[in-house]
Design a protein around this nucleic acid. Structure first.
Length: 287
DNA sequence: CAAGGTACCTGTTAGC
DNA sequence: TGCTAACAGGTACCTT
């Protein structure tokens, strides 16, 4: 569920409420939440370490662990939440991991209805493209996201134009550009007046450049709004919803008039999910 | 290697 | 009311 703006909102919350604190104790209530953790006893790997500055690449989040070259890495999957709650607050229905701190302050809880998300301890490795920068080994293959100052725009445009697949598929490919999911892909395509089924290889450099600019714009605007929340599944670390859903132009708006031309928004199946688009502004290629 | 399909989960909602 | 099917923001892994 959460895409870059939602994950960035959570990252900012972790930076404010969790970074700098020392882990006292960790409880794992659901083993699936740490299924990607391969480094032995998960609580023991965290206990006693101070959590560093919260970082993010695409939809992944991490907090470096003091006195190690490791980090606590997390992904929210479709329904994951990282919540900062008072110890006395009742447990959430799908509370899978609890992290307590030595200061006795609010604890960090990983809550996840659909269990596609997870936490793990991972090793930090040098970033290949930027000296001095480090990234969790598990996500070293994922591209930087378009709000990252070191995002390589020319390389992205070239790689997209070498793709023999639909442009929406390329936008969702985290190894080309990270952080974009189904909602913001549809929004960026609408803003660029491109149909998601257009073949990436047929787009000109300027068009791909405009698509990237629109992608950046919609992601940045959504961050300001605290992300998109359709229901209580996506919330920030304090349990509050974002309000970017009011700004969406196409996603989830089947049958409603296009904000540009008034034509009813259409929905069609794509990659086992839904795509929303304006059939007038975004001309569909032949099947 | 690139491309595309499927599996992994639980909960909500629409339709009969 | 009760059952069933479709659908939901994502990624990993498998086959072609």
């Amino acid at each position: 569920m959460p895409e870059l703006p939602e994950v960035e909102t959570v990252r900012a919350g972790l930076a404010e409420w969790v970074s700098g604190r020392i882990v006292a104790d960790v409880e794992v209530h659901h083993p699936r939440a740490i299924r990607r953790h391969l480094g032995g006893d998960f609580p023991a790997r965290l206990r006693g370490h101070r959590l560093g500055a919260a970082r993010r690449r695409g939809k992944y989040l991490w907090l470096p662990l003091s006195d190690t070259d490791e980090c606590l890495l997390g992904h929210l999957g479709m329904s994951g939440q990282l919540l900062v709650r008072p110890a006395a607050a009742p447990d959430e229905r799908h509370l899978h991991v609890r992290i307590r701190f030595t200061d006795g302050g609010p604890e960090l809880r990983f809550v996840d209805q659909r269990t596609f998300g997870g936490l793990l301890v991972d090793e930090l490795v040098p970033a290949q493209d930027l000296p001095g920068d480090a990234v969790p080994s598990l996500i070293a293959h994922i591209a930087r996201d378009p709000l990252d100052a070191a995002f390589d725009e020319a390389r992205f445009v070239a790689r997209v134009r070498a793709r023999h697949s639909a442009i929406k598929r390329a936008l969702l490919d985290q190894s080309l550009i990270s952080g974009v999911g189904n909602i913001y892909a549809d929004e960026a395509l609408w803003r660029t007046k491109l149909h998601g089924r257009r073949l990436a290889a047929t787009l000109t450099r300027p068009v791909v450049g405009r698509l990237l600019a629109e992608t950046r714009a919609v992601l940045a605007e959504a961050i300001v709004a605290g992300g998109t929340s359709f229901d209580a599944l996506y919330v920030n670390v304090n349990g509050e919803s974002g309000y970017f859903d009011r700004t969406l132009n196409v996603y989830g708006r089947e049958g409603e008039p296009c904000d540009r031309c008034g034509t009813p928004i259409r929905r069609e199946a794509f990659m086992n999910r839904s795509s929303y688009f304006c059939p007038h502004c975004q001309r569909a290629p032949r099947r």
